[in-house]
């Protein structure tokens, strides 16, 4: 009895003190090295050759203040395109995924079409589709509003990203274990009910992290639509840059993008880590 009550707590206390010392030491080391590093940057960077030119050209405070509101305004268009595209992409991507995993013989032509569609979209750069559809379709001489490059550029973006997303959904659906389907069918649920109530909810849950990554890419690629005309943030930055012969507007645009994409990426990473913990880290193909 006394061996337990005497050595137990004292050893635990010693261990805790040891851990505490170790923790303090790492904090001290990290702090020192950070201070030294920042000091070096502050000291050395301004001594770089032509630092004044770099500062004036990329980090001009005045230019920043001048461009920021205009670029933020222009960014609203990016956000609008993004907001319109996401539901379309998720819906269409899911339909394509369902068509590809279906075994109904009547759907064979649709299935074949989906395979071709996904191959075409994934195999060609987004930019090329945006040029092809965004310039090409309005060039057919359609009436307003059907001749808008903005509309067709967005269509191109939706078509490409739907194909990526359909592959993500498909891997999620195929990743749901066969025994789940067997259990649902054994209870008398139909094939459709099994998909809707058992398979798809589990598939969606497990693909949320890779899906988020695709949405982050989409958020950035929205800017590509600028190349066919619409004045969104990237184009506005280009206009500002030419007008003032200064690159700061591009830096402003980058900062605005980062404000959106960094939190999104961090959330995706966090979701992925959580999913890995839950499933033992084996089942996700991102």
């Amino acid at each position: 009895m006394n061996s337990d009550s005497s050595t137990g707590p004292s050893r635990a206390t010693a261990r805790r003190a040891f851990e505490e010392r170790r923790r303090r030491r790492s904090i001290a080391i990290a702090t020192t090295s950070t201070v030294v590093f920042v000091g070096l940057v502050v000291l050395l960077v301004p001594r770089m050759p032509r630092w004044d030119r770099v500062k004036q050209s990329f980090f001009s405070g005045e230019q920043f203040a001048d461009s920021f509101p205009r670029l933020l305004d222009a960014f609203v268009l990016d956000l609008k395109i993004f907001a319109w595209s996401v539901p379309i992409i998720l819906g269409f991507g899911m339909l394509v995924a369902l068509a590809r995993v279906s075994r109904n013989p009547a759907l064979f032509p649709i299935r074949a079409l989906c395979v071709i569609y996904v191959d075409l979209m994934r195999g060609v750069p987004v930019l090329l589709w945006i040029y092809l559809i965004g310039f090409g379709v309005p060039g057919l001489g359609l009436d307003r509003p059907w001749n808008s490059p903005l509309l067709w550029g967005t269509v191109a973006l939706c078509l490409t990203y739907s194909s990526y997303v359909s592959e993500v959904f498909r891997s999620g659906i195929e990743g749901v274990h066969e025994s789940q389907r067997a259990a649902a069918r054994s209870l008398g649920l139909t094939h459709g009910q099994t998909l809707r109530l058992v398979v798809i909810p589990q598939a969606v849950r497990r693909v949320i992290p890779p899906l988020m990554n695709d949405l982050v890419s989409l958020q950035k690629d929205v800017a590509l639509v600028s190349l066919i005309g619409p004045i969104e943030i990237l184009r506005q930055a280009g206009i500002d840059k030419s007008k003032f012969a200064n690159f700061t507007p591009y830096v402003v645009a980058a900062v605005i993008f980062l404000c959106i994409t960094v939190p999104l990426t961090r959330t995706a990473d966090w979701l992925l880590a959580r999913e890995r913990r839950r499933t033992g880290g084996t089942r996700i193909a991102a």
């Binding site: 025994s179 789940q180 067997a182 259990a183 649902a184 054994s186 058992v198 909810p201 589990q202 849950r205």
Partner: peptide, 11 residues
């Protein structure tokens, strides 16, 4: 039918 691996719906 009841399975060896239970097969409850985890969600």
């Amino acid at each position: 039918l009841v399975f060896q691996s239970y097969n409850l719906f985890p969600h």
